Amino acid sequence: MKYLVILGFLAIIGSLASALFFMMRDGRDGRPKTSNMARALGFRVGFSILLFVCILLAWKLGYIHPTGIPVGQ
């Protein structure tokens, strides 16, 4: 489960980096940079939702357990 979360965060960071790349690129190739950037940000939102659902499902199935902060500390 730990590796799935790490992979999810790497996918989110990679999608943000590609959106930054498309934002900074000057659209010389004829394609509008906003569509590529919007697609990359859409993937980021999708990866974030997928990661949240996977963590919630793992908690419901008992793969992970909340620990919390002990009372009084």
Rank of each mutant, 00 (worst) to 15 (best):
V53I: 15
F9L: 15
G30V: 06
Y3H: 11
L20W: 08
L57R: 12
M24F: 10
R39I: 02
F52H: 13
Y3R: 09
R28Y: 14
V45N: 08
V53R: 06
L61C: 10
G62F: 07
C54N: 12
L51I: 14
K33M: 12
G8P: 03
T67F: 10
Y63M: 11
L16V: 06
G62W: 14
R39A: 05
I6W: 06
R44A: 03
D29I: 02
H65C: 07
A40E: 01
A58I: 07
H65V: 15
P66C: 04
G30I: 08
V71P: 07
L16W: 05
S18M: 10
V53P: 03
A17F: 09
S18L: 12
S35A: 14
L16H: 02
G8Q: 04
M1G: 05
P70A: 06
A40Q: 00
G27L: 04
G8Y: 02
V5K: 00
L51V: 07
N36W: 04
R31K: 14
L50D: 09
F21G: 05
M1L: 10
I6R: 02
I12L: 02
M24D: 11
K2G: 12
M23Q: 13
R28D: 15
M1P: 03
L41M: 11
V71W: 13
I6Y: 04
Q73P: 01
R31P: 01
R31N: 10
R25L: 12
S35P: 03
L50F: 15
M24C: 08
V71M: 11
V71D: 13
L16N: 05
D26I: 05
R25N: 14
L50G: 09
R31L: 10
L20E: 08
P70T: 06
A58F: 13
I13G: 03
V53Y: 08
L56V: 12
L56S: 13
C54W: 11
R28W: 14
P70K: 07
F52I: 15
M24L: 15
F22T: 00
W59A: 13
G72W: 07
G68W: 13
I13N: 04
I6S: 01
I49Y: 05
